[in-house]
Simulated scan of single mutants.
Amino acid sequence: MTPSELSPPNEAAVGPPLPAAEPGSAEAVEAWRQETPFADWAATPLPGDASTRRYWRLSRRGETALLMVAPPGLLPPFLSMAAHLRLLGLAAPEVHEVEEEAGLAIIEDLGPETLAARLSRKPRVEGKATALVADLLAFLARTAPPPLPALGPAEGAAQLEPLFRHYGAAPPEAAEALREGLSHRLTEIGCVPDRLSLRDFHAENLIWRGEESGLRKLGLIDFQDAVLAPRAYDLASWLTDARRDAAPGLAEEVTARFARALEVPERQVAAEAAALGLMRSLRILGIFARLAQEGRRRYLGYVPRVYDHIELALTHPAVAPLAPLVRAAAPPPEELLGRGAR
């Protein structure tokens, strides 16, 4: 989950006991909090999404922090990447209190407004905000990454399994042909996994911090799944946001600005972004279908936009040869989603 719909802090009183949350019980989470300096802060639950993490905003006399409860094993990668990003001078949360084995942490609250909310409220600032996003992506692509798992062509193609399992009953031969074709195309385009990727990079995972300057205007969250990926991976993630449409022309502008900053031909970056965007969108199509099967049918509302991203990627000359394979394994949603997502 990301704090994308943050509720206002309740400063009147310390709230009721926290609801049960894995991996610890409500009592265990609250008992741990009572041993920290945040024991008497009000706790307000934040809305959840597709994540396995849960958050509460803690507040007292105008100050705020976030309590995060994560499944076993997910907290250490978050803490490690947060420290790395802060060393780079970027706005990642400071960690105030932590109990790694229990998956509990109290972290800095970077602010109440995501970039998505900011752009919805003030659409005229989207051009400047998008330029800042391009600068942030280029900065990350120029920095030496820490040791991380690699997400290259073969790994990316292998991650299409949710598509084949949940979106529709693709024939095994069609699924295998798409996996092989996508991996081959990514390799031919030159998608080498040698740059830091925050992986789930979109406007709801950026906190708008207007009082800051430079890249610190963008607060970074939801980076625990960071990997080594091709340089345009997070650019592709930004360009294929399932939850919002960008203003016309801004996709080309952010791509051009990113390419100039890295001194790479724009046509090369555009080809990489198209192929990686296709890979991401196919996987997301399967994930949203799975969530719908689990009863969270609001995710079906995002499917048309995701498929639009797929269709747009397939218009790029470097990706167009994959069109028959994509349509054989993942037809448009009006043909298969109704059956595959129930």
Results as ranks from 00 to 15, higher is better:
305 R>G: 14
326 V>F: 03
291 L>D: 10
259 A>F: 04
246 A>T: 09
266 E>W: 00
262 L>H: 08
315 T>V: 05
273 A>H: 01
235 L>V: 13
284 I>S: 06
248 P>A: 15
260 R>M: 11
261 A>M: 09
260 R>F: 05
224 Q>Y: 01
283 R>C: 12
251 A>Y: 01
300 L>H: 14
223 F>W: 12
251 A>Q: 11
304 P>H: 09
274 A>F: 02
309 H>Q: 10
220 L>D: 09
302 Y>F: 14
239 L>W: 01
224 Q>L: 10
251 A>C: 11
283 R>Y: 05
296 R>N: 15
296 R>Y: 05
315 T>H: 04
233 Y>E: 10
271 A>H: 04
226 A>E: 08
274 A>C: 09
249 G>T: 15
283 R>K: 15
254 V>Q: 06
282 L>I: 07
295 G>T: 08
282 L>Y: 01
290 R>A: 14
314 L>F: 05
275 A>S: 03
285 L>V: 10
303 V>Y: 01
299 Y>F: 15
286 G>P: 00
263 E>C: 05
243 R>P: 04
308 D>Q: 08
322 L>A: 06
245 D>L: 13
313 A>P: 01
281 S>L: 02
321 P>W: 02
299 Y>A: 12
262 L>D: 10
326 V>M: 04
225 D>G: 10
277 G>C: 03
265 P>N: 09
231 R>G: 08
320 A>Y: 00
250 L>H: 08
221 I>G: 02
276 L>Q: 11
247 A>W: 00
224 Q>P: 02
306 V>E: 13
